[in-house]
């Protein structure tokens, strides 16, 4: 359309050919995307439909609507306790990781530290190590320390394993805060503590939020670590609980399973949306420096 208007003087051939071509390609593009969208949507749709279906099975079908599944799950003590466990586990992990990442990233970004570069490389390398490698030694350590089957000690290890990447992420965010702002504040007579609290921290809020949410999403979904390090039913977080239910056909209805995993997924989806908003939101360093 715009191609036609933009070139009123061009010959007919020139106008018509690009117009048709573009349009066909655009049609194909959108069509392929719709198909791909279905591929991504279909499996999810089962969870949504089954959760409100009074008699669901493995296939997607138009549900005969009911809220009974929700009532079922919300009435189950094991389901509720696994939510509690997940909250404690992910919450503790997030607070610890974010706090320590913030504390470590600031000096790594701003101060003179010997061997900083190799240290950052080791940090980056560490964040790529497979958890499978750590499971056995950590299990041994926890047996030795008597730390098994506690949500807090499990969170401690989750925090340790997510810390390298969090430090790395956080450092990049702090690097992006112009150091001149700290200089200006120092000249203004502010103490180091005041500079951290009133200049650096407010400006790293978006980065801290992204780091915290990222850590939380990962800890919320963490499976193998709590699977190995906890055993009493009360301490099983959501993923382990869902896994147990999946294995116990018959004891747990499809509909309930769908509701459970749906409810368990909602918090991270909401957090992700929040994070992406935060990230692309109006807050930027516009106007700070020329």
């Amino acid at each position: 359309m715009s191609a036609v208007q933009a070139r009123p003087l061009a010959g007919d051939k020139l106008i018509v050919v690009p117009y048709r071509k573009v349009s066909a390609a655009a049609m194909a593009t959108n069509l392929v995307l719709i198909l791909l969208g279905c591929f991504f949507l279909l499996p999810m749709l089962w969870m949504v439909f089954a959760s409100i279906d009074s008699n669901p099975d493995w296939a997607i079908r138009i549900p005969s609507p009911t809220l009974a599944n929700f009532a079922d799950v919300l009435g189950r003590a094991d389901a509720l306790s696994s939510f509690r466990s997940s909250l404690i586990l992910a919450g503790t992990t997030t607070v610890l990781t974010t706090l320590l990442a913030l504390l470590s990233a600031y000096p790594l970004s701003r101060m003179h530290i010997p061997f900083k570069r190799p240290f950052m490389l080791v940090i980056l390398f560490a964040s790529g190590l497979p958890v499978s490698m750590l499971v056995v030694p950590v299990y041994q350590m926890y047996v030795y320390l008597g730390w098994l089957d506690s949500l807090y000690t499990t969170a401690l290890f989750l925090a340790a394993s997510s810390l390298p990447f969090a430090i790395w992420l956080m450092k990049n965010f702090i690097d992006a805060v112009p150091v001149e702002l700290e200089h200006a504040a120092a000249i203004d007579g502010a103490s180091t503590f005041r500079i951290l609290r009133e200049v650096v921290l407010p400006l790293t809020v978006p980065g801290t939020a992204v780091t915290a949410i990222y850590t939380f999403i990962n800890a919320w979904g963490a499976f193998i670590i709590p699977f190995v390090l906890t055993y009493s039913p009360d301490n099983q977080p959501g993923p382990v609980e869902i896994y147990n239910f999946m294995g116990s056909h018959g004891l747990f209805k499809f509909g309930d399973l769908a509701v459970f995993s749906l409810l368990f997924s909602v918090p991270v989806i909401v957090l992700y949306l929040f994070m992406s908003r935060y990230f692309s939101g109006a807050f930027n360093f516009g106007g700070a420096v020329k």
Partner: peptide, 30 residues
């Protein structure tokens, strides 16, 4: 719409993905 669906699939907890794909590929599944 498509971009959001793809991203939601990524954000879902792994265990949820395991469950829905388990359901998807079962005998009698979608």
């Amino acid at each position: 719409v498509v971009g959001s669906i793809v991203i939601v699939a990524w954000v879902l907890p792994e265990i949820t993905v395991a469950l829905i794909w388990y359901a998807f590929s079962q005998a009698g599944g979608t």
